[in-house]
């Protein structure tokens, strides 16, 4: 290593002062579940929308002994996941994995792994717009006041509109939740399929929004309830067929278009879950057992 650069190098990219600032925000967020804590978001070597908030939270909590997993839409092998994983390998030399069970920190964009998270694990979400009321009330001053005074009638106006227009609650992602009976929170654009996994999760959940400069958190064992109406209760998505590769049921599936004649398959969005099931002998309808010719 070039010793001339040593002075400017710090573990996990951010300088220690910045990490302390972010850790303070994280601690406050954990102390007030669901409350959006402002923090001085830094410029990161990636564009906004690619996970600058999540990366800063991960950098602030990462230690040399941690094992990092990064997923994007459930997949370990998409651009965003690969580059963030490579980033932390380079700037922190930490161990990385794609196995949910082995990871201590999982940074995620848009999914919660299918495998149940354990105590001691931390899930870091990349959040584009942390304010659940934003699309109904554009004024930040007003939404802050609404959070402070617990005026959440407006959130139900959105759900009312959904039912009035579509006959059912058509919000399928970023489905608003109430945390520990107090703050209404946007669970980042995860599908509502994952909302029940947040409820009383044994893992710590941290949310970082880089552009909007907000951090919020759901500590382990916290109550997370999806909003609904008495006569239109909250429901998660269900799928007709199991995963075409591993045959898993009750998991979130992605649609893959196969040809231009309407052919398609539905496969696990959580690639690690799918691979582990295939490895242990589960087979779906389109699973390929022959040798792969490259």
């Amino acid at each position: 290593m070039n010793t001339a650069n040593l002075a400017t190098y710090n573990f996990a990219y951010l300088d220690e002062q910045t990490k302390r600032m972010i850790r303070r925000a994280i601690l406050k967020a954990i102390a007030i579940p669901g409350y959006q804590v402002p923090f001085a978001s830094r410029e990161m070597p990636m564009p906004y929308g690619w996970g600058t908030g999540g990366v800063q939270v991960t950098a602030a909590i990462l230690g040399p002994d941690d094992v990092l997993k990064v997923i994007d839409q459930g997949a370990d092998d998409t651009t965003n996941a690969v580059s963030i994983r490579a980033f932390f390998q380079k700037v922190a030399s930490v161990a990385v994995t794609t196995r949910t069970g082995e990871a201590t920190i999982i940074q995620t964009r848009h999914r919660i792994p299918e495998e149940k998270l354990k105590p001691g694990q931390t899930l870091v979400y990349q959040v584009p717009i942390p304010e659940p009321l934003r699309f109904l009330e554009p004024r930040e001053t007003e939404t802050r006041k609404m959070h402070a005074l617990e005026e959440y009638g407006l959130m139900h106006v959105k759900l009312y509109e959904d039912i009035a227009r579509n006959g059912h609650i058509a919000t399928t992602y970023a489905y608003p939740v109430k945390v520990e009976g107090r703050y209404v929170m946007d669970p980042s654009p995860t599908p509502k399929f994952d909302n029940p996994k947040m409820h009383r999760s044994e893992a710590l959940q941290l949310f970082g929004a880089g552009r909007e400069k907000r951090i919020y958190a759901v500590p382990p064992h916290t109550e997370v309830v999806s909003l609904d109406f008495e006569d239109h209760p909250f429901e998660i998505q269900s799928f007709e067929n199991p995963c075409a590769l591993c045959g898993a049921e009750n998991v979130y599936l992605d649609e893959v278009v196969l040809d231009d004649k309407g052919g398609r398959m539905f496969v696990c969005s959580d690639t690690d879950h799918c691979e582990q099931r295939c490895a242990s002998g589960h087979r779906g309808s389109l699973a390929y057992d022959g040798e792969i010719v490259r």
């Binding site: 009638g153 407006l154 509109e161 009035a164």
Partner: peptide, 14 residues
Amino acid sequence: VSAGANVGERLMAV
């Protein structure tokens, strides 16, 4: 938001 939701907002707020 629709007329119905406009009228209903106060109800939902309480």
